[in-house]
Write a protein that binds this DNA or RNA. Structure first.
Length: 255
DNA sequence: ATGGCCCTTCCGAAGGGA
């Protein structure tokens, strides 16, 4: 089963990119983040041969899961804070697999309420993952984590010092997730540097390959055991009117 | 080179993203 994740930075702007990519790659599932609007082009996705379930929000955030067969929605918000109205979480069951699509808060600037919100969100995510582990439900968490796991996951570690994506507290929260027994899928087979999933629009970051790795798949133990491959498709980032992120794809020996 | 991003919303400018 092939499952992909892609922060599209507005589904309205990126619809042709998404349908074109699906046509070419035919993954079983595509998780998308940063829809940036209340309207979701369900019928266009349907015409491309895919079902979809969406958690939208006006102007900001928004996540959806696009899949060949229908998903069963389990949760449309991350538990742990009823006052949190940001559309950043979608959990579904797909063919006996629990799929969690996240758009984890950026957290910058760190001297505002945005950073504690990010850290609290990560703790809530850990709580959720811990519960699924205890229930021995096979699951994966995919999406835009807004976490640079290590120095080799960015072009210039020095320049990221103090940033919400790279702070010690962020790394600690990410490690707490991994310590539940989850595996960073890309790093199972690939330990090379420069495995980027995001390049800033500014300053010629893409042609200079000044990227960062912030889009991830975390696999629970049975899925890590069954993973065939995890790859990053750089092609979409080079297209006209590209998103600043590019897709990551995990292939699991499941069904 | 004197500057060099892209998206949203409500209408030229401001806020968010990372």
């Amino acid at each position: 089963m092939k499952i992909a994740s892609w922060n599209v930075n507005s589904i309205k702007q990126r619809l042709p990119h998404v349908t074109g990519w699906l046509k070419e790659n035919r993954t079983d599932v595509l998780m998308v983040q940063e829809l940036k609007g209340l309207e979701f082009p369900e019928m266009d996705i349907k015409a491309a041969g895919y079902e979809s379930v969406c958690v939208p929000q006006k102007a900001f955030n928004g996540v959806a899961i696009i899949s060949k067969e229908s998903c069963e929605t389990v949760l449309t918000a991350l538990p742990g804070d009823d006052s949190d109205e940001q559309a950043r979480y979608l959990e579904v069951d797909y063919k006996g697999l629990r799929l969690i699509n996240i758009y984890l808060p950026n957290g910058n600037p760190v001297d505002t309420e945005k950073y504690p919100y990010k850290l609290a969100w990560m703790e809530r995510l850990s709580k959720r993952a811990k519960l699924l582990r205890e229930q021995t439900i096979p699951f994966l968490i995919g999406g835009d984590f807004n976490v640079i796991p290590e120095g080799k996951d960015c072009y210039d570690p020095q320049s990221w010092t103090g940033d919400a994506l790279f702070r010690p507290e962020t790394h600690a929260a990410f490690r707490r997730l991994l310590n539940l027994g989850l595996t960073d899928a890309l790093r199972i087979h690939n330990h090379a540097a420069e495995q980027y999933t995001y390049w800033d629009y500014q300053g010629g970051a893409w042609p200079a390959n000044k990227g960062i790795r912030i889009d991830h798949f975390l696999l629970s133990p049975p899925l890590a055991d069954k993973m065939r491959s995890c790859t990053i498709d750089r092609n979409p980032r080079g297209q006209e009117k590209a998103s600043d992120h590019t897709p990551i794809i995990v292939d699991i020996d499941w069904n």
